[in-house]
Amino acid sequence: MSEAALSGALPHRRRLGEALGGWLLSLPAALSFLLLLLLPTLAAVAMAFTDFELGLWPPAWIGLENFEEMWADRGFRQSFRNTVVYVGLVAPASVLLGLGLALLIEAGARGRAFFRAVFFLPVVSLTVAMAAAWQYLLHPTIGPLNAALRVLGVASPPAWLSSSDWVLLSLASIGVWEQAGFNMVLFMAGLTAIPRELREAASVDGVHSAFARFRLVTWPLLGPTTLFVVTITLIRSVRVFDTVAVLTRGGPNKASEVLLYTMYTEGFTFLRLGYSAAITLVFLVIVLALMLVQTRLLDRRVHYG
């Protein structure tokens, strides 16, 4: 073989080998992505426009009928409203609590690891088991919370999880308890990324109070972290399912129906898969909208690079 041919062939063969390697290495992931994520997701979207029920074959295209039914369904509207209220309670509270805890822990040297572990504990605890513990804690007659309230002079404390007035608030409190530690850890990561020199420069520049320093340095530099934490908290709150499934099953009288639990009962209890898929689609649109808002805001606020 001539030298010219050799030098021409080698890079070509190398490129081919690299492409082949690339394909072979991504193949398992690509196949499982296709079978387990892409196709089922598309199928779920398609199902939302059919009257698919398990055992009834073939399903028929019914266009927007599922969505019309949803719109007219008081149960769904209740479920949607409950989800909004739940998210509206949990997201701000757990973000603020997470930020407060992170600032409080970072403000001093002593007890950092200990308190970080304490507040993070709910993240690694079995949600179902902790929900049961909350059920005991909030039990109307034997629960320690109401026992304490009675000692404090409250004659008839509420039945937290079985009163339609209180159930959402109780679930939201559990939600805050679950998520605050997670948010705290994210905020702590954001805080350590702020150079210590900046806070020192602020001190030398005449910033005396901790609050003024927070306003000048910490809060603006925490901006991207905060945006991210807010988005992820919103999404995690929209996904609320475990506590409802364990504690209330949507009750009493649908007072704690939430989106994913409605989707679950419609789909897997009543086996109305088409309708359930339509609810899933609503859920997906909400999640995508939240992510879109986050990306937009992030793009607009690149203040340093």
Binding site: P40, T41, A44, S276, F283, L284, V287
Partner: peptide, 13 residues
Amino acid sequence: LVPPHVPALPLYV
């Protein structure tokens, strides 16, 4: 972007 709850229905089927 897709939460795991979305493909759940068709996977179940």
